[in-house]
């Protein structure tokens, strides 16, 4: 089991920045540029690993610990998610709660690290992050409820692979609605357009990026790596929900899953290319919209009967 856990974590560590590379390439392609190479996110992180650190005199150990804790938490959350024929190595009844709360732990440390700098810009980012993630977490749990009701399970991997094919046949609209709302959560949690623009450089309007203004070197590398992993893990869950490939032979499962991941990365690039980011005060409305989608999904499940 130890080897399977290690394998699972290695897959995430090695492949997660690639997803960002594909998204970046797609965005460049859509606006008619060549864009950075596919492996650019690796180069970026690698460059940071070679740099020294600058610490503000205001900060305490929390500032230095937060990147480590948050990267470790998202990395560990990966072991609950199946990647194609690579099954989740350590499932247990109720792991979805730990899954969601590991992100809570990561977020809490990033928020207090931002407050640790004493900068008002980072305070702003932290405050917005806290507000939006509250709403996102509620939507996430609502989606989990739908999946749990359909699969009668609280194990994340069973919820997304067990009988999801028959659920699609019986409760297609419900899963579709859950999928749409989950996609919006995915965008919000990973600071993608339209919630947040990872490329922006105006502190007053940023959310995630402004929280890490003062981080540098290894800390920043951990943060960037952590967000790549988060996108990978949440994205893998999305592919698992939307593509019911779990009845196929293992080889096909692997192919379909990874193809799904690539399509997701390209899809993210397309979404980001055709949308502008929302104004800050409209982000809650977007998340409430996601909430309504999921609620309607839940109603469909309840009315059709489980």
């Amino acid at each position: 089991m130890g080897i399977r856990i290690l394998l699972h974590i290695m897959v995430v560590v090695i492949l997660s920045p690639l997803l960002l590379g594909i998204t970046g390439k797609t965005k460049a392609f859509l606006v008619g540029r060549w864009g950075p190479p596919l492996l650019q996110p690796y180069y970026d992180i690698g460059k940071l690993f070679r740099k020294g650190n600058v610490y503000s005199t205001t900060t305490t150990w929390i500032f230095q610990a937060a990147p480590v804790v948050s990267m470790a938490a998202v990395l560990v959350s990966a072991i609950f998610v199946p990647f194609g024929s690579l099954k989740a190595p350590l499932p247990f009844f109720g792991d979805i709660i730990l899954f969601a709360y590991l992100y809570g732990l990561a977020r809490f440390f990033m928020i207090i690290a931002a407050l640790d700098t004493g900068s008002s810009f980072e305070g702003m980012g932290a405050s917005r992050e806290a507000a939006f993630s509250c709403l996102a977490e509620v939507v996430l749990f609502l989606d989990f409820i739908i999946l749990a009701l359909l699969s009668k399970s609280l194990v994340l991997s069973e919820m997304v692979e067990g009988n999801i094919l028959s659920s699609w046949q019986l409760f297609g609209p419900a899963i579709l609605l859950a999928g749409v709302s989950y996609f919006l959560v995915l965008l919000a949690e990973n600071a993608r357009i339209p919630v947040d623009d990872p490329a922006t450089h105006l502190e007053l309007t940023m959310v995630h990026e402004v929280m890490v203004l003062d981080h540098s070197g290894w800390d920043l590398a951990y943060i960037l790596y952590g967000s790549a992993i988060k996108l990978f893990v949440l994205g893998a869950l999305f592919v698992n929900i939307l593509v019911p490939f779990h009845g196929l032979p293992p080889v096909m499962q692997t192919i379909v899953f990874w193809a799904g991941m690539i399509v997701l990365a390209v899809g993210l690039g397309i979404v980001e290319s055709c949308m502008a980011r929302l104004r800050l005060n409209q982000v809650p409305q977007l998340l409430i919209g996601a909430f309504v989608f999921a609620l309607v999904g839940l109603l469909v499940v309840l009315i059709k009967g489980v």
Binding site: F49, R50, K51, G52, N53, V54, Y55, S56, T57, T58, T59, T117, G118, S119, L213, D214, G217, W218
Partner: peptide, 14 residues
């Protein structure tokens, strides 16, 4: 890694 890399103290970026 930090043993081989420079670590500086500075003010918070304002």
């Amino acid at each position: 890694a930090m043993k081989f890399l420079p670590v500086e103290k500075a003010q918070t970026w304002g």
